[in-house]
């Protein structure tokens, strides 16, 4: 799985595909204060990107992928 859900933290890894968006949104609805760990994530499908933009969660660990980090910084601040 590209997203592993822990108690109050969603851990993203590799390529987060389009299928994940719905579950991600649902998870945030249940855990409105949920944080995300992007450390090992290299890409997030646009659908999940817009979920993140709607929620604006706290990023506990930024992505190691510099380009993704740049994009997300402009989006989630």
């Amino acid at each position: 799985m590209a997203i592993e859900y822990k108690k109050n933290l969603a851990v993203f890894s590799d390529f987060v595909g389009v299928e994940e968006a719905e579950a991600l949104l649902e998870w945030f609805l249940k855990n409105p204060k949920g944080k995300i760990n992007l450390s090992d994530c290299v890409h997030i499908h646009a659908s999940s990107l817009q979920v993140l933009m709607a929620i604006k969660p706290i990023i506990s660990v930024e992505s190691k992928d510099e380009d993704l980090k740049l994009w997300l910084n402009t989006v989630l601040e």
């Binding site: 719905e22 990107l49 709607a54 994009w71 402009t74």
Partner: peptide
């Protein structure tokens, strides 16, 4: 770069993650 998200849904519950509003 800049991404604009134009959420048409009133609430998060109504949001459709698969309708691209970016």
């Amino acid at each position: 770069r800049k991404v604009v998200f134009n959420n048409v849904a009133q609430t998060l519950e109504e949001m459709d993650a698969y309708s691209c509003q970016l």
